[in-house]
Measured scan of single mutants.
Amino acid sequence: CHSECLGNCSQPDDPTKCVACRNFYLDGRCVETCPPPYYHFQDWRCVNFSFCQDLHHKCKNSRRQGCHQYVIHNNKCIPECPSGYTMNSSNLLCTPCLGPCPKVCHLLEGEKTIDSVTSAQELRGCTVINGSLIINIRGGNNLAAELEANLGLIEEISGYLKIRRSYALVSLSFFRKLRLIRGETLEIGNYSFYALDNQNLRQLWDWSKHNLTITQGKLFFHYNPKLCLSEIHKMEEVSGTKGRQERNDIALKTNGDQASCENELLKFSYIRTSFDKILLRWEPYWPPDFRDLLGFMLFYKEAPYQNVTEFDGQDACGSNSWTVVDIDPPLRSNDPKSQNHPGWLMRGLKPWTQYAIFVKTLVTFSDERRTYGAKSDIIYVQTDATNPSVPLDPISVSNSSSQIILKWKPPSDPNGNITHYLVFWERQAEDSELFELDYCLKGLKLPSRTWSPPFESEDSQKHNQSEYEDSAGECCSCPKTDSQILKELEESSFRKTFEDYLHNVVFVPRKT
């Protein structure tokens, strides 16, 4: 048989008469490798580009789960590009990614509803959504962080984005990388972005840091009482949809009607710091009717980097990364020049730590249904340095008659930039024990000054392991946590139920 035959053949030295091919099969003959313009397919066939392209389009058009959109890589027609490569849609070739590779997620039936953290986790790592997304989240724990972890990498949506009755959302900033909504599939009414009845939605994105392009379709905003109209108009300008909307697409009466839409800028007039305090004062603000001013709200939190936005980490279910302080308005003076500047002394802060701070007014709604208010920009203030805590785990070892090696770990709280350490030492008198000992005694162990690591005695271990207080009263049991108490109650309830079950099964009433 021919060298490319495997198993047997019907005619000697003829690659077209093989029972099976050793390498690849091409047009009725066995070959060692697939010549151009053919590609290896499933490690035994040679196919042309049209064959591989037909497989790709067949799966793409069917949208069946589990099928493969075949691509070409290293002269092979394979189910998908290997790690580190992405497909070129024009020629199906796998090309190296520039940075992290995109991950295209194809949605069944063309859309997916995100109504819980669990459903959001199914899209973790996706960068391109081939379909439409509907966000409908009523509640949950730590929602802002969970949504950002699972949806934060999405850069492109081919269909539309719909935010509907998501009472738990305060902001859409968890879509931190969303840059493009194509609108290839539109919501009824030709809408590519749809926001309806979101009672706590206050911000779409921080438009000073976020760009969003909507290729096709219109915007729809109705019944978002805490979303200011200025935020919607800003989205029109940034996304390129200005002029597409009709009169009733953006409701003037049901958007922002319960919001404090600040239209003035508060400026800080005085800032002073110490290692654990920050004193702030800002310019006074009074609405047209000074009785509408209820006070100020001061927001602050630790910020290692200057990239904080107002609604980071917030949701309507209680999660809030900001510390909020309510401040009463100052006494009002008739003389504008003698107006008191409101302020606040922030206490209990960490030394040498940068804080993000902003302040906003708290006002009631005027009778004319106009909203007044003022808010400052987010500023960054760093507390002063102070003395560091003591170095940890000092170790001293003498390696000769004239040297001592000293080692330690950095302090747990540096409280500033540590530039150097101060080492103090003092000579001590020799131990009298060394002169009084009889060095001729056998088995004498000389006193040693070398360091030995501390260890816990058996008594201390027994005390720590004991669940009861000892007789001397030195140790006591740790208080039980809520989960331990709940577990004990469940076990007790189970024992009672099981005992009742045994009584009912074992003891049967005697027939009379």
Rank of each mutant, 00 (worst) to 15 (best):
T215F: 03
S398F: 14
R281L: 09
D292W: 15
I327A: 11
L151N: 00
I232P: 07
N190H: 15
E231M: 04
L279V: 09
G140M: 10
V238R: 15
N130A: 03
V308S: 13
L298N: 00
F358P: 00
G140E: 13
R124F: 03
S398Q: 13
R179E: 11
G189Q: 01
A145I: 14
F193H: 00
T323P: 02
L279S: 06
D328F: 11
L201K: 00
M346L: 12
I134T: 03
Y167M: 15
E146G: 12
E156Y: 05
D393W: 09
K409Q: 14
L151F: 06
P394L: 07
W352R: 05
P411V: 12
P304R: 14
T386M: 03
Q121G: 01
L280C: 11
Y285Q: 01
I278R: 00
E302S: 08
P394W: 15
D312M: 15
L186G: 11
S192L: 00
A145T: 11
I271L: 06
K301D: 07
L123W: 08
K242C: 12
K253G: 07
E237D: 14
R272L: 07
L169S: 06
G343K: 09
N224S: 06
L186R: 07
S333E: 14
K234V: 11
K267Q: 12
N211I: 07
P394G: 03
V104P: 03
T254L: 13
L298P: 01
S389Y: 09
L298V: 15
A259F: 08
F290Q: 07
A316T: 03
H210L: 09
C317S: 03
Q339I: 08
V359M: 04
S230T: 03
E302I: 07
S389L: 07
C126M: 01
I379P: 00
R164F: 14
S171N: 13
K209D: 02
K360T: 03
R347Q: 11
T361F: 15
L349V: 07
S321A: 13
L153S: 11
P342C: 15
P287T: 09
P284K: 06
F311V: 07
K234A: 08
G139E: 04
W207G: 05
N340T: 12
K234S: 07
A168S: 00
S396W: 03
R138S: 11
S158W: 15
Q403T: 03
I232A: 08
G373E: 02
L196Q: 13
V325S: 13
G110F: 04
D206G: 06
C228Q: 03
L392S: 12
W207N: 05
S119M: 11
E237L: 08
N248F: 12
L392W: 15
Y167C: 12
T323L: 13
F268T: 02
L172P: 02
I188G: 09
K301T: 08
L266E: 01
N307G: 10
S269A: 08
K253T: 08
R138I: 03
Y300N: 02
C317H: 04
T127F: 06
I278N: 00
G256K: 02
Q314F: 09
K103N: 04
M346R: 02
E184S: 12
K267F: 04
T309S: 12
K409H: 04
Q258C: 08
V325R: 11
S158E: 06
S239C: 09
P411F: 01
L294C: 06
W352P: 00
P336R: 11
G152I: 00
W322D: 01
E231Q: 15
Q354W: 08
K177F: 07
Q354Y: 15
V325K: 05
P284S: 04
A195E: 00
K162C: 15
V238K: 07
S389P: 03
G152T: 02
K360V: 11
Y305I: 05
Q199H: 12
G318Q: 04
L362P: 07
F221N: 01
S260K: 08
N307K: 10
D115K: 13
Q258I: 02
S192G: 13
T254Y: 05
L108W: 09
K162I: 14
F220Q: 14
Y223D: 08
M235L: 14
D367A: 03
L161S: 00
W352Q: 04
Y305H: 05
W282M: 05
D367Y: 15
G343L: 04
W344M: 02
I188H: 13
E310S: 03
A374L: 06
A144W: 14
G140S: 12
Q245V: 05
K162E: 04
G343Q: 13
D312S: 09
R347L: 09
P304G: 03
S166D: 01
Q258D: 14
H341T: 09
N136I: 14
L196V: 14
D292N: 03
K177T: 07
L392I: 13
P342T: 08
T364D: 15
S132D: 10
P351G: 14
P342M: 09
N263K: 10
I357R: 00
A195V: 06
K218A: 14
M297I: 10
C317R: 03
L186H: 14
F290N: 14
G313V: 11
R244S: 03
N211L: 08
N190C: 03
L153R: 10
P388F: 01
S158R: 04
W286H: 01
H233F: 02
F296L: 06
P411A: 04
C126G: 01
L227W: 00
R124V: 14
R370K: 09
E109G: 12
Q199Y: 10
G256F: 08
S192C: 04
N340Y: 10
I135H: 15
L294H: 11
C317G: 02
D289L: 03
I135L: 06
A356N: 01
L392D: 04
T213C: 11
I157F: 02
L298M: 11
